[in-house]
């Protein structure tokens, strides 16, 4: 059975977005925090049930996803290929748990579908498949694919004279792939101001720190040198993320693409998972799941 949107999802999502935009910073931050917590709890349950997943990279990106899907992007779950939708491209395909839990939260498909995560013949593979999952723009998993595709969607918008945005989330470790830097060069050359690259800067890759493996620093200088307007943002501060994602740092006449370096904590939200390389794809035991859910409830 193909996945289909929850009836009324589009109007609910748009109403949420409008309300969040109109809310006070304090109310907005509280709502966004609640959304992120709900997504993390669901994501944890999925991984625990499936016995597989990438919880560290899921949790470092959850706050970014919660802000994008509830307050920033113009999306249409009931018509997921509406031509004028904003494009969200997740280059770190292994953080599928966070993506799927967010898509279900936004109503792209029923929450119950998340219980099939990684099951035989499930639409919800370990890495996202756009042909099975509404809301997924491109199939990722191999690293360094998202930014080049995002250059294409941003070029298409520019050719159309459309204001629709492209936001691409990339892991930090995957910036070791050269394809990103080809694409960055091209994005700046083509003045793709509608493109925002968010780097999930949790400083870890599969087995060790990024700086121990093949150092990325000075990362902001690199993106700036490639022609991007670069900003650091606390990747777990919902209001800061909302503000950073809501306007181009160069103003309305901008002609540079944007790079937001989201400083994040791998495994954010659960003390015994945070900042530990082994939790890149470790699966919590039943006791650990219970303890983690308790921490996430606070």
């Amino acid at each position: 059975m193909p996945l289909v949107a929850v009836p009324g999802a589009t109007s609910r999502l748009r109403a949420t977005r409008q309300a969040l935009r109109a809310a006070t910073a304090e109310d907005r931050a509280r709502s966004l925090r609640d959304a992120a917590t709900a997504i993390r709890r669901r994501n944890l349950a999925m991984i625990s049930r499936a016995g597989q997943g990438h919880i560290g990279g899921d949790f470092s990106a959850t706050d970014v996803l919660a802000v994008l899907y509830t307050a920033v992007l113009d999306l249409d779950p009931e018509n997921p290929e509406a031509p004028e939708r904003d494009r969200y491209i997740q280059s770190k395909g292994h953080a599928s748990g966070a993506l799927y839990a967010t898509l279900a939260y936004a109503g792209f498909f029923a929450d119950a579908e998340l219980d099939t995560y990684m099951e035989p013949l499930s639409a919800l593979n370990g890495h996202p498949n756009r042909r099975k999952i509404p809301g997924v723009e491109t199939n990722t998993g191999p690293l360094g694919h998202g930014v080049p595709v995002a250059v294409g969607t941003a070029l298409a918008a520019k050719l159309d004279g459309s204001a629709r945005r492209t936001v691409v989330l990339t892991g930090d470790g995957e910036l070791q792939e050269g394809s990103n830097w080809e694409a960055a060069m091209s994005a700046a050359h083509h003045k793709l101001a509608g493109l925002t690259v968010i780097v999930d800067r949790n400083r870890f890759q599969q087995g060790a720190g990024t700086e121990e493996t093949s150092g990325l620093e000075p990362l902001a200088d690199k993106w700036a040198a490639f022609g991007f307007a670069v900003q650091h943002v606390d990747g777990h501060d919902h209001e800061a993320l909302y503000q950073a994602l809501s306007a181009h740092p160069d103003g309305p006449d901008a002609d540079r693409p944007v790079c937001l370096i989201a400083d994040t904590v791998k495994g954010k939200g659960v003390s015994f998972i945070e900042n530990r390389a082994e939790w890149h794809h470790k699966v919590p035991t039943a006791d650990q799941t219970a303890a983690a859910l308790q921490e996430l409830a606070r």
Binding site: P148, V149, A150, V151, T153, A156, L159, E182, A183, S186
Partner: peptide, 27 residues
């Protein structure tokens, strides 16, 4: 405007092609 030269960058060339198709173009 419709000749997009990404430079000597084949991975970006094909990835951007996929993105352009996502945006309704025939690349």
């Amino acid at each position: 405007d419709r000749l997009i030269n990404v430079g000597i960058a084949e991975q970006t060339m094909v990835g951007a092609g996929a993105g352009l198709a996502n945006g309704g173009r025939v690349p």
